[in-house]
Structure formats: C-alpha cells, structure tokens
C-alpha cells in the first residue's frame, strides 16, 4: 500500500467518525424539537449526512454502485421535506396554538362537568325534600 493510499484510509476512517458525531447531534435536535419544522429540518439534515455516509462507504469498499443509491436517497429526502412543508402549511397551527386550544377545551369541559354536578346535587336535594 502506497503512502497516499494509507492517507486515504485514515481520512475515510476519520470522516466516518466525524459523520457519526454529526448524525448523533442531528438526532439530538430531532428529539429535542421543540417544533415540528425543527424536526423536519433535522430529517433533511439526516438525509444529507446519510448521503455523505454512502459516498464515504463507496470510497472505502470501492463499490461504486452506491452512488445511484445516494441520488435516489436525495430525491426521496427532497420529496419528504416538500410533503412535510405542505403538511405544516395545511395544518395551519403552531404547537403553542394547539396547546392553548387543548387547554381551553379542557377548562370548558371541567366547568361543564362541575355545573352538571351541582345541578344533579340540587335535583337530588329537591327530590329528598319532596319525598319527605
């Protein structure tokens, strides 16, 4: 093995380590969120990192056919991001708004059940009085 090939071997191994770190950092962002577009962006970045992985593995193994997989993966990643962006647009609400709506609905339901309880208790009392 010549000097240059040894260098390439080291470079490929270092690149795989760096890409793994990058992958993990992106996954931390996806898990943390905090919003849906952040996670979509993380997915986009994950696809880019995966393409890099495929290219580096292609160099390491010398199996050149991987490049077609990289192109197909790029296409799928693009379409996924576009579809998710359309979903964000059609949902039309941020997480904060959804949370606020849920809280308002829960509050209303709690109030309604309290009123109902009061009404039932009153009716029961009246019934008891009448039967006496």
């Amino acid at each position: 093995m010549s000097f240059a090939e040894t260098i390439l071997d080291y470079a490929v191994n270092i690149a795989l380590v760096i890409l793994s770190i990058s992958f993990i950092l992106t996954i931390i962002r996806i898990v943390r969120g905090p919003t849906l577009p952040d996670r979509i962006l993380g997915l986009d970045m994950l696809v880019a990192a995966a393409i890099g992985f495929i290219a580096v593995i292609g160099i390491k193994t010398g199996y050149i056919l991987y490049i077609d997989i990289a192109i197909a993966l790029g296409l799928v990643g693009f379409l996924a991001t576009v579809a998710f962006a359309r979903f964000v647009l059609s949902r039309g609400k941020t997480e904060d708004e959804l949370l606020r709506e849920a809280k308002t609905a829960a509050e209303a339901a709690r109030k309604k059940s309290r009123d109902e309880e009061k009404r039932v208790a009153k009716a029961l009392k009246r019934e008891k009085r009448l039967s006496r």
């Binding site: 270092i14 950092l25 931390i28």
Partner: peptide, 19 residues
C-alpha cells in the same frame, strides 16, 4: 482524501449549527 475530510467537517459544522 482531502475532499472526504473537508466534506465531513462541513457536515459536522452543519449539525453543530443545527444544535
């Protein structure tokens, strides 16, 4: 080898920025 290393470095920078 240089392209691989520079590319990996850019990917790392991108994910650090993302975080």
């Amino acid at each position: 080898a240089a392209f691989v290393l520079i590319g990996a470095f850019f990917a790392l920078v991108a994910s650090i920025g993302l975080l």
